[in-house]
């Protein structure tokens, strides 16, 4: 019968066809334009950034012999060290503050809001989509010497002279950043809370837990991934933020990104600017990883 021959003869042919039309290959084919764009606009620039950080600027000429001179300068100069520590300190504070403030809000939407969840989420995310520059600018006019708070308090007769401590200091930076990154904290925490199977809480209640122990034994541990996600999403970009310290930070509130901008725009020492950015990203990655590891450990201990 021809059938048997057909089966034997077709088998190898079919497997080549499968290879060419393979699902995996089609998938790669479809993502390749996006990947190419990302390689050109993200991977290549970052590679060049690393290269630049290994070069040296001598007045007007660029010395392309690789060396770690820039990094020695970055880590050996007190002024830079202060900027690094301040950046990490400010963004740690911002992260803590934002997550702590966002948690009850996310909890409220996930557990207490019954009907208008969609509207609440839109309300909480819309400010995040509006111009970052304008939001920071709003805080500048709120906190300014002749700003909204001071002029408001004076016209109410509560104070006679404006407060000077509102604007141009690290606190102003912290408040402004906490406002700007609120949505980054709410969404991941909300998602992890929303995912919690409500029957787990009923089971805990059935086994004798009250509302408070239910929260600490079930809800909080299960929302840890969301909290960690939120913390990373805030900590990483805020450490390298430029606009907020430049507008509301004053001289005491400047951060590492402002120094990077100075190196690129004014001093024209690109290698040093590159080394500063890479060092700051390295520091951020290190702190973030350490915190995550410690948080995981702490959670395991609590359980």
């Amino acid at each position: 019968m021809a059938a048997a021959h057909g089966v034997m003869g077709d088998a190898p042919v079919r497997s080549t066809r499968h290879f060419l039309h393979s699902e995996t290959l089609r998938g790669y084919f479809l993502v390749s334009p996006a990947l190419a764009a990302l390689i050109f606009t993200l991977a290549a620039p970052l590679t060049l950034l690393v290269l630049y950080s290994l070069w040296t600027q001598n007045d007007l000429t660029l010395d392309t012999n690789p060396s770690l001179a820039q990094y020695e300068r970055v880590f050996g100069t007190d002024a830079y060290r202060v900027l690094f520590l301040r950046s990490l300190g400010i963004s740690s504070l911002v992260t803590l503050l934002t997550v702590a403030m966002a948690y009850p809000m996310a909890y409220f939407v996930a557990f207490k809001v019954k009907r208008a969840k969609f509207l609440w989420l839109i309300a909480l995310t819309v400010p995040f989509w509006t111009s970052y520059l304008l939001r920071v600018f709003a805080w500048k006019i709120i906190l300014g010497y002749n700003g909204v708070i001071n002029s408001g308090l004076i016209s109410l007769g509560l104070i006679s002279d404006p407060f000077e401590f509102l604007l141009y200091n690290p606190t102003a930076v912290v408040v402004t950043l906490a406002h700007a990154f609120a949505a980054f904290a709410i969404l991941p925490i909300y998602v992890s809370l929303e995912k919690i199977d409500r029957s787990l809480l009923e089971a805990a209640a059935d086994l004798g837990d009250g509302p408070v122990s239910r929260f600490f034994r079930i809800t909080l541990p299960l929302s840890v991934p969301g909290v960690i996600g939120a913390a990373v999403l805030i900590f990483v970009p805020t450490t390298g933020d430029y606009v907020t310290p430049a507008l509301v930070g004053g001289t005491d509130g400047l951060m590492i990104a402002n120094m990077v901008q100075v190196q690129f725009a004014r001093v024209n020492n690109w290698p040093l600017g590159a080394a500063l950015s890479i060092a700051s990203m390295g520091a951020v990655a290190f702190v973030a990883c350490m915190t995550i590891v410690m948080a995981r450990f702490a959670v395991r201990r609590i359980r």
């Binding site: 057909g6 077709d10 079919r14 497997s15």
Partner: peptide
Amino acid sequence: AQPDSGRILIDAEDVTT
């Protein structure tokens, strides 16, 4: 889905591929 080997006929027509 397509068989790795073997064949399928419907109304005497080979529809395997």
